[in-house]
Write a protein that binds this DNA or RNA. Structure first.
Length: 501
DNA sequence: AAATTCAACAACCGCTGTGGC
DNA sequence: AGCCACAGCGGTTGTTGAATT
């Protein structure tokens, strides 16, 4: 094994076990705007991959792993930021029921979303529901991944956790979600008929004025929800899109909106029309959540999270059901996915459930040795399910954007910034290397703005270092966007920025 | 107003899988 | 086959701001 791949991400800060070209102490912690700019510049010039060479060639004092993560989670085009839509949440729940803690695979089904994002969302959601005494999955979704084709993975993860426990006896590890995903419980099953809250309470979607964009290579799936469309692509994969581009950007009036970076983007591209959703958070009653599209110009405030805390169950109403919520599972979109509870399993994360599964595993091991016919049958089932799943996972097209969240501007970081920056400037290659194809198409974050920004930083606006970059509009937001982008193919990107016409 | 709690997010860590040599 | 470097994944932790007490 190659722990950390020698990418120097270990705490000591030495850059790699081989010593490497430099034994510089690698920077950790939050990324700065300057670092982001450099990384984006680098990726634009050299493309993705070779993350370990980023440090060598760009002067970034970051390990390759960190660079990859930063790129994947924040800088790459087509990233969708902001709160998850109800539909996305629904999808996440369904996918989790199906896949377990396979965040990356789930992310592949959620255009513009990262595994980290989904993971974070899930963990907090699980925590919240746990605290509220609610089952993890809504009544109409039952996990089925546990005893099927992911057993191996979970076994591996379990081993992994055990190892970590051995290494870190004090670690509280065993996260809730991993616990959940690795445990099949009967809890949810028990509650499946008494469950009174669906996470997806009634959501009112008004008809949109804009006709849905349709993937040219996809077939449009009928969907009762006028704001969301499901597509089945050529590969049989499913994808979700909004009928109008949803760019959860802040308005230019947001305090963290960096006007010098790309607010002009908004001004210069009148053709872009951003919609978002206003969340009518009747949070106290949680009876109804309504969305309606609004202009980005109307987005003066951060959208409240739909992941808002669940109300405390009233003592009276929660007596029997564990919660006092009114179920209103009107979402019909899930029909497209149909997570059928072939093996009805719950998933509450309760210890007893873990024990149960452990016993079940033991039994399974036994029967395995006996090579029962049922075992073979199960294997066949596994294979076929995997085949279906492979079909499922092939959809990728992601109209979205980079949306950056607020950042802080800690003074201490300001102090270190100059040093960082100077060293970066010293080592940043000045030669211009060929720009990937996609750079030509969209323009020029790099050679225009970014360089300018870096330069500007030199002459004195480095105090904006922590000012987050404004979101970068992708071609997805433009009417003539090539839809079949694919979140994995960056060699043919339509430009990170389209601000220049 | 201060302290506390919590949700959301960003980033790191440790591990596995894979491909090249 | 073994080693190494790298990419990627999943779990965990730390930080921050908002909400609550």
């Amino acid at each position: 094994m190659a722990p950390d791949g020698g990418d120097g991400s270990r705490s000591s800060g030495a850059s790699g076990k081989s010593g490497g070209p430099s034994r510089q102490v690698l920077k950790k912690g939050p990324w700065t705007a300057v670092e982001d700019a450099i990384l984006m510049e680098y990726v634009k010039k050299h493309g993705e991959g070779n993350w370990n060479s980023v440090q060598r060639n760009s002067g970034l004092i970051r390990c390759g792993k960190s660079c990859r993560l930063r790129w994947a989670n924040h800088l790459r085009p087509n990233l969708k930021k902001g709160t998850f839509s109800a539909e996305e949440e629904r999808l996440i729940v369904e996918l989790h029921a199906k896949l377990g803690n396979k965040w990356a695979r789930m992310a592949a089904q959620l255009p513009g979303r990262t595994d980290n994002e989904i993971k974070n969302y899930w963990n907090t959601r699980v925590k919240r529901r746990q605290r509220a005494g609610l089952p993890i999955y809504p009544a109409d979704i039952q996990p089925k991944h546990h005893q099927l084709h992911h057993h191996h993975d979970q076994q591996r993860q379990t081993n992994h956790r055990q190892q970590q426990h051995q290494r870190q006896p004090n670690s509280s590890s065993s996260s809730l979600s991993s616990l959940l995903s690795s445990s099949s419980s009967s809890h949810s099953q028990k509650n499946s008929h008494s469950l009174t809250l669906s996470l997806f309470n009634r959501i009112n979607f008004p008809p949109t004025a804009n006709p849905p964009k349709q993937h040219p290579n996809s077939s449009f799936l009928p969907n009762s929800n006028p704001q969301f469309n499901l597509f089945r692509d050529n590969n049989g994969g499913l994808a979700l899109s909004l009928t109008s581009p949803s760019l959860p950007f802040p308005a230019a009036t947001e305090p963290w909106f960096n006007p010098g970076f790309s607010s002009e983007l908004f001004q210069q591209t009148p053709s872009l029309h951003f919609n978002s959703f206003r969340y009518n958070n009747n949070s106290r009653s949680h009876k109804e959540v309504s969305f309606y599209p609004i202009s980005s110009l109307d987005m003066g405030i951060e959208l409240p999270s739909i992941q808002s805390p669940l109300p405390k169950p009233s003592p009276t109403s929660s007596a029997n059901t564990g919660s006092g919520y009114i179920i209103d599972a009107t979402s019909s979109d899930a029909e497209e996915y149909e997570i059928a509870p072939e093996i009805p399993l719950g998933n509450s994360g309760l210890l007893e459930d873990l024990v149960e599964e452990s016993q079940a595993l033991t039994r399974a091991e036994k029967s395995k040795k006996e090579k029962s016919p049922a075992d073979n049958e199960a294997k066949v089932k596994c294979v076929s399910e995997e085949a279906v799943e492979n079909l499922w996972e092939s959809s990728i097209f992601a109209p979205s954007s980079i949306g950056m969240k607020r950042k802080k501007n800690p003074l201490e970081e300001m102090n270190s910034m100059d040093d960082d920056f100077l060293s970066l400037l010293d080592s940043f290659p000045s030669t211009v290397t060929p720009v990937p194809e996609w750079d030509d198409k969209g323009g020029s974050l790099s050679n225009g703005r970014l360089s300018g920004m870096v330069t500007a930083g030199v002459v004195g606006i480095n105090s904006h270092r922590e000012v987050p970059r404004s979101p970068v509009v992708t071609a997805a937001a433009t009417p003539h966007h090539e839809w079949a982008l694919g979140s994995c193919c960056w060699n043919n990107l339509p430009g990170i920025c389209e601000e220049q016409s």
